[in-house]
């Protein structure tokens, strides 16, 4: 009975309870991942059935990425990283932020086939085919400047001490913070990854500028964490020590530096890759090379496979 009472549904601050290196699954995390996984598989099957029983060639490619995103979601949110970050160590909270932003969000987005995204965006669409509220809202928040604003505002808000100290100490608040951050991260990636032509996206030079901006603005909250004389968060300051030699200020400094340095390295690495790809394409006489799998994905992205498979009209 005591074991049952100890089950935590979502990772939240547990001030006053000493940390134990004893596996305790977070039921809500597993339920969320199972729900997403089941919905994904069900959607794939339905789509395959509609296409005559054969899954599209690119499906496995997408499924692998989506599966990796879900696996990373479990790693970042279940024991030990979830509860450690939610209630004990600011540095682990920063690590979770990095995993959700640069791992889970892009993998889930890259793992969702375009037809599935379109189906999601069609929710609430009108009978005459005009876009509904979902598409209009998603189109708005994924406009590059809006996405940039949403992501950075969310970054600041979710790092504010009153927000963290108030929300992270309840399972609902912690859940809301995690989901809000994941949603903001997905929104941030849409203009870069351009999953659907109808959602728009950025050209190569603007993508570099967008990434540059993303690498600069988070410096502000990261600096507060790094250079503050005192612990900013009551939650982490008063939490029982996990590592006796790691005091709250040093833990906070590691969090700030981690967000800045690791986040910066990732963003600048992506910028470097994009820059060289762009430069290669701009070379005079350069012949674009497209792999077959890329071609398959592009067919889906532009919704051309379905049209090709339509029977010719009489």
């Amino acid at each position: 009975m005591n074991r049952l009472a100890e089950i935590a549904w979502w990772c939240s601050g547990t001030l006053g309870q000493p940390w134990r290196w004893e596996y305790r699954p977070l039921v809500g995390v597993w339920l969320l991942v199972a729900g997403l996984g089941l919905a994904y598989v069900r959607s794939l099957r339905r789509h395959a059935a509609e296409a005559g029983g054969e899954p599209a060639p690119a499906t496995r490619h997408y499924a692998r990425r989506f599966g990796a995103g879900l696996a990373l979601l479990i790693v970042s949110s279940d024991w030990p990283l979830g509860p450690l970050g939610a209630g004990y160590l600011a540095s682990v909270a920063a690590l979770r932020t990095l995993l959700l932003t640069f791992g889970v969000a892009p993998l889930l987005l890259l793992g969702t086939p375009p037809w599935m995204l379109r189906r999601l965006l069609r929710i609430g669409s009108r009978a005459d085919g005009r876009p509904g509220a979902v598409f209009t809202l998603v189109r708005l928040v994924t406009l590059p400047w809006v996405a940039f604003l949403v992501f950075n505002c969310m970054l600041v808000v979710t790092q504010l001490p009153p927000v963290v100290d108030t929300l992270k100490v309840t399972q609902l608040g912690s859940f809301v913070l995690d989901i809000a951050w994941l949603a903001a991260s997905i929104i941030m990636w849409v203009p870069l990854l351009r999953p659907l032509p109808e959602l728009g996206g950025l050209g190569d030079p603007m993508r570099l500028l967008y990434l540059f901006g993303l690498s600069i603005l988070p410096t502000v909250p990261a600096s507060f964490l790094t250079f503050s004389r005192f612990p900013l968060y009551r939650l982490y300051e008063l939490a029982p020590r996990v590592v006796p030699s790691l005091d709250a200020v040093v833990d906070q400094q590691i969090a700030g530096l981690g967000l800045k340095i690791v986040g910066g390295i990732i963003l600048w690495s992506v910028m470097t890759v994009l820059f060289f790809r762009w430069a290669a394409r701009e070379q005079p006489g350069a012949v674009p090379t497209v792999s077959w799998s890329q071609f398959e994905r592009d067919l889906e992205r532009y919704d051309l496979r379905h049209r090709r498979e339509q029977p010719p009209s009489p």
Binding site: A8, W9, W10, S12, G13, T14, L15, G16, Q17, V27, G28, L31, L32, A34, G35, L38, A39, R42, G87, V169, T170, Q171, L172, S174, F175, V176, L238
Partner: peptide, 28 residues
Amino acid sequence: AFSRIQLLLVALVVVAACTPTTTTATLH
């Protein structure tokens, strides 16, 4: 039935997430 199960799962997550962490709430 499948949709109902999914709805139930989502509801479980939300309801479960509402459970406060008693020790923390009391201390604060």
